[in-house]
């Protein structure tokens, strides 16, 4: 009977050696995802660092006699409605997009992480107070919070970063707090307390390092989420307009051309999607490696 259903999955055959080879294969498969993701991210980061080496045209050069040209060998991604080479604009646009992604994760992650850590470690009324404040932030959907803050601060790259960062704080705070609480209860903490370590020392040397990994995983994925939120703001009319637009702005402003010149918004859209996708793959992999028994977040 076992042979009748044969070999569709490796694990059925059982046995420790089989299981071992299977694990290796799973690793290999997962890693080819990882390698792909790594290549995408490396390329995009290279675009942000040295765009002039990669882009064939200036991102601001408007070839007004060749607007909305379909992709060709001269223009890999075609030209947009200004007559700009879309490939070059996307390459240069990676700068602002990555800046929005990374900067808002750093700001939001640090702030959220700090709130969560203090709440979790201090406990008591500090915890209650901070977590109620966090609840208040959570009751307002993130995109609305970002929308309101971006509206309040006005347009500008840093303001977008701040808006996206604030809207991500509650998520980081929650996960950090949960992690700190679970570590606080472990025996090695009690052990170091019994040998007379100060609470700060315990926190700094033992609790924090052990609590960081889920935050890092969330931050990795958060880079992608931040870019998506930023593009949502562009869609709702609160993006930034800089000389070289970021991907969200490109996608949002090109969307009206989808039925007449599909390439204008498709390539910025793909750039966002592939980057977020790659970041997610890496985040997943980090999660597997750091904490294999990790349950649902939040």
């Amino acid at each position: 009977m076992r042979e009748a259903v044969t070999a569709s999955t490796v694990w059925r055959r059982g046995g420790s050696r089989r299981l071992f080879t299977f694990r290796l294969r799973r690793l290999a498969a997962a890693d080819s995802f990882l390698i792909g993701a790594g290549i995408i991210i490396a390329f995009i980061i290279a675009c942000a660092l040295v765009p002039s080496l990669i882009a064939p045209y200036s991102p601001t050069a408007m070839l007004t006699d060749s607007i909305m040209q379909a992709p060709s060998s001269a223009h890999l991604f075609g030209t947009d409605y200004f007559g700009r080479d879309i490939f070059s604009v996307v390459v240069y646009g990676s700068r602002d997009s990555l800046f929005i992604g990374f900067a808002s994760v750093i700001v939001g992650g640090l702030a959220g992480g700090a709130i969560g850590a203090i709440a979790g470690y201090a406990g008591g009324w500090v915890d209650s107070l901070l977590m109620r404040c966090n609840d208040i932030l959570m009751t307002i959907p993130g995109i609305l919070l970002a929308l309101a803050i971006a509206g309040a601060l006005g347009k500008g790259l840093f303001n977008i970063v701040l808006a996206v960062a604030v809207s991500s704080i509650p998520g980081y705070a929650r996960i950090m707090r949960a992690q700190i609480i679970s570590i606080k209860g472990r025996t090695f903490i009690a052990a170091s307390r019994s040998v007379g370590a100060t609470p700060f020392h315990i926190f700094w040397k033992h609790v924090l390092p052990n609590a960081l990994s889920p935050l890092l995983v969330m931050a990795a994925i958060g880079v992608g989420t931040a870019i998506l939120t930023g593009s949502g703001l562009s869609f709702l009319g609160l993006g930034v307009l800089r000389e070289i637009p970021d991907w969200g702005t490109l996608l949002s402003q090109g969307r009206g051309y989808l039925t007449v010149a599909w390439w204008i918004c498709t390539f910025p859209g793909l750039a966002i999607t592939l980057f977020v996708l790659a970041v997610n793959i890496i985040g997943d992999r980090m999660r597997d490696r750091l904490d294999p028994k990790k349950n649902a977040k939040g």
């Binding site: 060749s66 607007i67 909305m68 379909a70 989808l258 039925t259 007449v260 010149a261 599909w262 498709t266």
Partner: peptide, 14 residues
């Protein structure tokens, strides 16, 4: 791409 590309013939005469 196919989702957006199937009406290439309607390309605007810029």
């Amino acid at each position: 791409l196919a989702a957006c590309g199937s009406n290439k013939d309607k390309e605007p005469s810029a």
